[in-house]
Each structure stands twice: as structure tokens, then as C-alpha cells.
């Protein structure tokens, strides 16, 4: 549904990512992995149209922005924003409104459904900014679900969450993928969960160093090395 051809991105003339070519096919669950500063978030922003590539092209085949849901990287800036959980989730239906000024019954029903799936119905009236990190991410995932018809893009949905809450988050994403058939493109720090849940791995290190099925990744040189670094780190802790 989305094809990236020889993509490159730069900030202020400095190349941060180059030679990225891969294809997102319907139903896949793709994890983008790599070190900090390897260009993961930049690539995601490019695919979402938030940042223009410096060269290469992105072909959208049978998908438009209105079919996409997005869970941005966690930011502190919303910490004093007055809004209820329901207001936030419902705002995900914006791209289904077309010319309408107000949300209709269907929009509200979809928001209700998304909140039910994320198990946040009982905090519907609460203030978004006062929720815990894990609850906030569930709310934002519910919003992404409301706006997604075909694809959800997630940028480190579990950063800053404890292991149990992270695992729940990844499981929810997996359910969205397998039960609702929504394609997933996720930036992740957590290589173990990436291997466990995804179907494909895209490994970036300023350039594309691996793209393929996760089974092949685990057997590849780069995959083995990367997994080893993580394994060793975990061992030390």
C-alpha cells in the first residue's frame, strides 16, 4: 500500500538517513529498529507527510492520509492541556467527517468502540493530562484507531512505560493487527517485543541495513549482532 524508493532525509543540509527502499503491504506488522539517532522517527515523519524527503519518492497506492492513524512519540508538552479522554479519542474521527461540522452518531459509536477495545471506558470523563503514562498511551492508541481505516503508525508507543505496561501495549497493537486487519508500522526500541509480535523488521542505521521477514532477521548477521547487544545489556541489569 506504501512503497518507499531510495528515500533520503536531511536536516539543514546534513543527511540523517539515505537509501531506504521497502514496501508496506496490507496486513503486515513492520517494526523499525535501530540505535538512537538512526533515523527511525525521521522515516516515519516522512511517510506521514510531516517531513519532505530530500530525495527519492513515496508512492501511496490505494491509501490516503484519511486512512491512517498515528501515535506520536510521547511529548511532555501536553501535560497541562485541558481535555477529557473522550474529547481526545473522538478527535481521531476528524478525518472521517468530510464536510460535516459536527460529529454524528457513527463517529461517537466508533469512539465508544475504540475506548472499549482499549479498556478505557471507565476513565472516559477524566482529564487526559492527569492520567498515568500507560493510560495516556491507551487513549492515544484509541484515537489512532478511530482515524485508521488501513494503517496505524506508532512511534515508540512504550517509551517510558514499565515492562508489564509495555507488554500490554504491544499486545493491544497485535490484536488491532490480527483481529481488525489493520497494518502496523512501529518504531520500537524493544527488539525482543519487535521479534515476538512483528511480521517484518526494518533495521536502520543512517541507512537501511536490513529489511525482511523477522525470521530472516534473526538469522542475519546484523540481526544477530543487534540481538546480542540487547541480550548482553539485559544480562548486566
Amino acid at each position: 500500500m506504501i512503497i518507499c524508493e531510495n528515500l533520503a532525509f536531511s536536516y539543514e543540509g546534513v543527511n540523517v538517513l539515505s537509501d531506504v527502499s521497502f514496501e508496506i503491504k496490507s496486513g503486515e506488522y513492520i517494526c523499525i529498529v535501530g540505535e538512537n539517532g538512526s533515523g527511525k522517527s525521521t522515516l516515519v515523519k516522512g511517510i506521514l507527510g510531516l517531513k519532505n524527503p530530500s530525495s527519492g519518492r513515496i508512492i501511496y497506492d490505494g491509501i490516503s492520509k484519511k486512512d491512517i492513524g498515528y501515535l506520536p512519540q510521547y511529548s511532555q508538552s501536553k501535560c497541562d492541556f485541558p481535555s477529557s479522554v473522550y474529547e481526545v479519542v473522538l478527535s481521531g474521527r476528524l478525518n472521517s467527517m468530510r464536510g460535516r461540522a459536527f460529529f454524528n452518531k457513527e463517529d461517537k459509536a466508533e469512539a465508544q468502540k475504540a475506548m472499549q477495545l482499549m479498556d478505557i471506558l471507565r476513565i472516559k470523563r477524566q482529564n487526559f493530562s492527569e492520567l498515568s503514562g500507560g493510560q495516556k498511551q491507551r487513549v492515544l492508541l484509541a484515537r489512532a484507531l478511530c482515524s485508521a481505516k488501513k494503517l496505524i503508525v506508532l512511534d515508540e508507543p512504550a517509551s517510558g512505560l514499565d515492562p508489564k505496561v509495555s507488554y500490554d501495549m504491544y499486545s493491544l497493537v497485535k490484536r488491532i493487527n490480527s483481529e481488525l486487519g489493520i497494518t502496523i508500522l512501529m518504531v520500537s526500541h524493544d527488539i525482543r517485543s519487535a521479534i515476538e509480535f512483528s511480521s517484518h523488521i526494518l533495521h536502520l542505521n543512517k541507512t537501511q541495513t536490513f529489511y525482511g521477514e523477522k525470521e530472516a532477521y534473526v538469522e542475519s548477521e546484523i540481526g544477530k549482532n543487534y540481538l546480542c547487544i540487547w541480550g548482553c545489556e539485559h544480562h548486566v541489569h
Binding site: 506521514l48 507527510g49 510531516l50 490516503s64 492520509k65 484519511k66 491512517i68 492513524g69 498515528y70 506520536p72 501536553k78 492541556f81 481535555s83 474529547e87 481526545v88 473522538l90 478527535s91 481521531g92 476528524l94 478525518n95 467527517m97 461540522a101 459536527f102 460529529f103 484515537r143 489512532a144 482515524s147 503508525v153
Partner: peptide
């Protein structure tokens, strides 16, 4: 403001999300 209330809320709350999803 009343007619665009929902859109203005979304743009104010999270510009990246709103832009990425087609507004």
C-alpha cells in the same frame, strides 16, 4: 469557531497527528 470547533480542537491538541491524518 463553532463550525470548526472540532477541527480547531484537534489542531490545537496535536498538530502532528491532525496533519498526518489528513487535515
Amino acid at each position: 469557531y463553532s463550525l470548526l470547533y472540532n477541527r480547531i480542537f484537534a489542531v490545537t491538541f496535536d498538530e502532528d497527528f491532525t496533519s498526518a491524518t489528513g487535515t
